[in-house]
Amino acid sequence: MAQQQEERQVFADIVTLHQHVVYRYLLRFTGNVHDAQDLFQDTFLRAHRAYAALPADADVCAWLMRIAINLTKNYIRDRQRRRRVMLEPVGKRADDEIPEPKDNADTEGLMISRDIARTLQTAIAALPFHQRVAFTQRQFEGLEYATIATHLGCSQESARAHVYQALRKLRLVLDGTDAREQRG
């Protein structure tokens, strides 16, 4: 019994240590609290089941992020499937929360119009999965390419290429210009 309690405490400590990183990723990725909370729960319950088999020297943070990323992949797939069934246009879901720009002193100089925020959020959500993960982690979490590469199971070069591709697409969206015209 004592051993079980000890084990529970060890896992609770792991959650406390990594919950911010994992949650931040999930919220950035899904763009809404409801889905982020569900995926947060799934991530750590899955981790809890597999934790006993994790080697002692494993990188726990990277391991948790890989679980979270896999779950977001399923999440995207399920949503796309649901959309197809419901014939719902991408990015027009009522529960896609776009953060309200805060009108306070901290961000006054950084005001962003609601339209641009919405355009960017929609464009980010439309990125291919790997680009979206790499971009979110680099741009919003400031992670190293090497770290992103371990999360995605790709090379550093690919991680960087994903981020650059994503930026290029966002730039084109902001320009309001079709990609083909740009290149031609």
Binding site: Y23, R24, L110, Q139, L174
Partner: peptide, 16 residues
């Protein structure tokens, strides 16, 4: 600049 603003105005811990 837009992306930085987006990040700054969005509380990434809400709901945690």
């Amino acid at each position: 600049t837009h992306l930085h603003t987006l990040a700054a105005t969005d509380n990434a811990q809400r709901g945690l």
